[in-house]
Simulated assay, not measured.
Amino acid sequence: MTVQNINMLQQPLVTMNNHQNQKVTPAEAQTNFSTSLKTAIDHLNRAQVTSDKKTEALAKGEIDDLHDVMITAQKSSLTLQTAVEVQRKAVDAYNEIMRMQV
């Protein structure tokens, strides 16, 4: 992961910490979460598309840098694996909340 990707992952935490002293309405929280989720999904999609384009260009013989193609593919794979793990954790957290008794 690059420094930019790590900063992108930490951005929601920084945003949340800035609002600790302020009251955030449920609508604002939902909007912030939705925006963060859309940004993360867009980042994942861009990584996948970039990897696909470079792999296709390599197969067509348009580029010769196998090293760059493999690095891009690995970055794409790690980004997807991270997204899947975050999704699993979110589903587990949701299921745990649903099991709570009120």
Results as ranks from 00 to 15, higher is better:
residue 4 Q to F: 06
residue 4 Q to S: 08
residue 4 Q to Y: 10
residue 4 Q to K: 05
residue 6 I to L: 15
residue 6 I to E: 15
residue 6 I to P: 01
residue 6 I to Q: 11
residue 6 I to N: 05
residue 7 N to L: 04
residue 8 M to C: 06
residue 9 L to E: 05
residue 10 Q to V: 05
residue 10 Q to T: 10
residue 11 Q to K: 02
residue 12 P to F: 04
residue 12 P to C: 13
residue 13 L to V: 13
residue 13 L to I: 15
residue 14 V to L: 09
residue 14 V to R: 14
residue 15 T to W: 02
residue 16 M to D: 10
residue 16 M to G: 06
residue 16 M to H: 12
residue 16 M to C: 12
residue 17 N to Q: 14
residue 17 N to H: 07
residue 18 N to P: 04
residue 19 H to R: 13
residue 19 H to N: 11
residue 19 H to A: 12
residue 19 H to P: 03
residue 20 Q to Y: 06
residue 20 Q to R: 12
residue 21 N to L: 07
residue 21 N to V: 06
residue 21 N to M: 10
residue 22 Q to S: 13
residue 22 Q to N: 14
residue 22 Q to E: 13
residue 22 Q to Y: 11
residue 23 K to G: 08
residue 23 K to V: 11
residue 23 K to R: 09
residue 23 K to P: 06
residue 23 K to M: 08
residue 23 K to F: 08
residue 23 K to T: 07
residue 23 K to L: 08
residue 24 V to W: 01
residue 24 V to F: 00
residue 24 V to K: 10
residue 24 V to M: 09
residue 24 V to S: 06
residue 25 T to V: 05
residue 25 T to C: 07
residue 25 T to L: 09
residue 25 T to I: 07
residue 26 P to W: 07
residue 26 P to K: 15
residue 27 A to R: 03
residue 27 A to G: 07
residue 27 A to W: 08
residue 27 A to S: 12
residue 27 A to V: 11
residue 28 E to F: 14
residue 28 E to G: 15
residue 28 E to V: 13
residue 28 E to M: 09
residue 28 E to S: 14
residue 30 Q to V: 07
residue 30 Q to N: 11
residue 31 T to S: 13
residue 31 T to W: 12
residue 31 T to E: 11
residue 31 T to C: 06
residue 32 N to G: 06
residue 32 N to W: 09
residue 32 N to F: 07
residue 32 N to H: 09
residue 33 F to T: 08
residue 33 F to H: 07
residue 34 S to A: 08
residue 34 S to P: 00
residue 34 S to M: 05
residue 35 T to Y: 04
residue 35 T to E: 02
residue 35 T to C: 01
residue 36 S to I: 01
residue 36 S to F: 00
residue 37 L to S: 03
residue 37 L to C: 00
residue 37 L to P: 00
residue 37 L to W: 01
residue 37 L to G: 00
residue 38 K to Y: 01
residue 38 K to N: 05
residue 39 T to G: 05
residue 40 A to G: 01
residue 40 A to R: 01
residue 41 I to D: 00
residue 41 I to M: 04
residue 41 I to T: 06
residue 41 I to P: 05
residue 42 D to L: 05
residue 42 D to G: 01
residue 42 D to V: 03
residue 42 D to N: 03
residue 43 H to L: 06
residue 43 H to M: 08
residue 44 L to G: 00
residue 44 L to I: 01
residue 44 L to F: 01
residue 44 L to R: 02
residue 45 N to R: 02
residue 45 N to D: 02
residue 46 R to Y: 04
